[in-house]
Design a binder for these strands. Sequence first.
DNA 1: CTGAAAGCGCTAACAC
DNA 2: GTGTTAGCGCTTTCAG
Lengths: 363, 363
Amino acid sequence: MSTPATRRRRGATIEDVAVQAGVSVATVSRALRGLPNVASSTRERVMTVADELNYQPDPAATRLAAGRTRTVTVAVPTLNGWYFSTVVAGAEAVCTEAGYDILVIGIGSVADRARLLRDDSSLERRTDGLVVVDLNVTEDEAASLRARGIILTTVGSTAPGFPSVKVDDHGVGRLATEHLIGLGHHRIGVLGGLKHDPMSFDVPAARQRGHEAAMRAAGLTVEPALTTPGNFSIDGGQEAMARLLALHEPPTAVFAMSDEMAFGALRELRERELAVPGDMSVIGVDDHEFARVVDLTTVRQRVAAHGATAARLVIEAIDAAATEEHQGRPSLVVATDHDAIRRATEVELVVRRTTGPPRRSGT
Amino acid sequence: MSTPATRRRRGATIEDVAVQAGVSVATVSRALRGLPNVASSTRERVMTVADELNYQPDPAATRLAAGRTRTVTVAVPTLNGWYFSTVVAGAEAVCTEAGYDILVIGIGSVADRARLLRDDSSLERRTDGLVVVDLNVTEDEAASLRARGIILTTVGSTAPGFPSVKVDDHGVGRLATEHLIGLGHHRIGVLGGLKHDPMSFDVPAARQRGHEAAMRAAGLTVEPALTTPGNFSIDGGQEAMARLLALHEPPTAVFAMSDEMAFGALRELRERELAVPGDMSVIGVDDHEFARVVDLTTVRQRVAAHGATAARLVIEAIDAAATEEHQGRPSLVVATDHDAIRRATEVELVVRRTTGPPRRSGT
DNA sequence: CTGAAAGCGCTAACAC
DNA sequence: GTGTTAGCGCTTTCAG
């Protein structure tokens, strides 16, 4: 009857290419994917035609037929926040480069987490690989992911049997504390995580142990009252600093387990007109972009590199798994580039102007 | 021969549900999607079976068959940076809520941009909708997107014929400047965008015009030398501030078009030991999470809400387009919730402690 | 080295 | 109301 309603214009299909090149669709498929058993003359012709026609395989069709999505998903507790968005940025760059789509998903609540990791979220149909940030994956969850064929890498947390990109948090705590001790501090406050962490995030515990190890190594006693939760947030850090200041005998320096908490602490100090580092030294962790702005001494971690490395690991494992499937050489071991990880997870003390000798012992 | 290699475990298919429920796959499809012409008893049975089997439609199959991806893509110049990641966070929340997948893509370079918008990136096969942040879309690009059936909404920039979520940038410039003038400043510096912007980003121009309008309205003259590019970055802001300070007769206040530039400016001032606001008042735009930390006076925009609103507009338009296709009632007009947009794009002056009367005129 | 054909799991006419 | 039947565009045996 009437002209068919202007349908969404679609691009060239594999069949168009096949016809133009005078071969079958199967050959086009092989040629374009670089499979063997294609005469190089044929391959060339196909490739020429393909880009004359500006042919791009339809992702949905490819996924359906091949069972691979060429997509990696990054799951973060929240997308705002410097740390997380920086990790995502690092991952995005690598994925795009490798031709993978990148899906992001926020898993702020325990419910979100369960939905993603346990229930049949049909996650395996939307993604080949998963990068989970700052969230410990349980044995069960890991098993479920493995059964579903999903490749996982964690950043800042761990998952049984899967690779993880993380710094040596014990070392971080030690490094920061040693810096303070070296300056002459004896009473050192610590701004840490949450009291009750529903997501079982164990970074704070490790940094705390590192801190304590450094204290003991220097022959100093660790006072539990000097460690107080700061929730890894600016406000939390500020409140925590206030709490320490209210102590009968406050510390002369604080180790904030993240720069954001350190910023909060600095704010509290400024509001009370206390001098930094004169009255109080402050050291953070991250080297947040803002650390430079307020001259915060910190333990730098290469956050974007963490995301990039994790993405790279995931993609390599996906590709490896795909290859195995063909060659029937099932190896559970993923070739991880240990040097790259090592590089990504190195930390470095960056001394700026929020740390110095304590006033009294300076005498 | 041997046991078939443990294939990736796949979930229940529509057929499993159909068999279990004793109906055809077509009926299952209808029942589950809430289409009419399904006996409610049937629908109920199907739904029961479906979640007993924990059935989830395969996205790839759905996409291939229906031509819809249930995915929206957010394109940002870069993923790091507070502004962009906050927009993405806002959009993510809405998409997840609506059951849409969210793809993110960085379009830092002109080449990336071209690839996404013009070349056949087969974008229409991976996404139903697009949220483009801070990037003006040309007439041609918009036409191309329209032809490909992609729904677009921009944030902070515009695209001919597509909705846009943005603040009144002229108003922003005026508001900031009026605040400064009200405090008694006559010479006001401006930290703006880039000299040559390859992405044709016109926010800075609009804010500049607003600034100039306010100046003239107050009977003040605008001196071109007092406006200098700051690249919307911390470092750029710092350098720009240094440039203004080097002037024969520096301003007594600066309007930084973004908080990040303001932070850079504050840093420069601190390094020179100039008092804020005594020697120099500084006002920014955004209400970046750190504005609070350094007590920066700023013009607040609700950035996360921008992302959320844009995502909502896109999703509504996608759903509307899908409905039309069925009912043959093609309306090019998308029902945009103007109140929501208005709410999202309101700006607000937040006076903190980096602005005050100029020292001299304070006499 | 290449082609034919059978799906992948779903949606959308079109019959009944 | 419900079932049947084509596809959607690709990959992957299996023959040749």
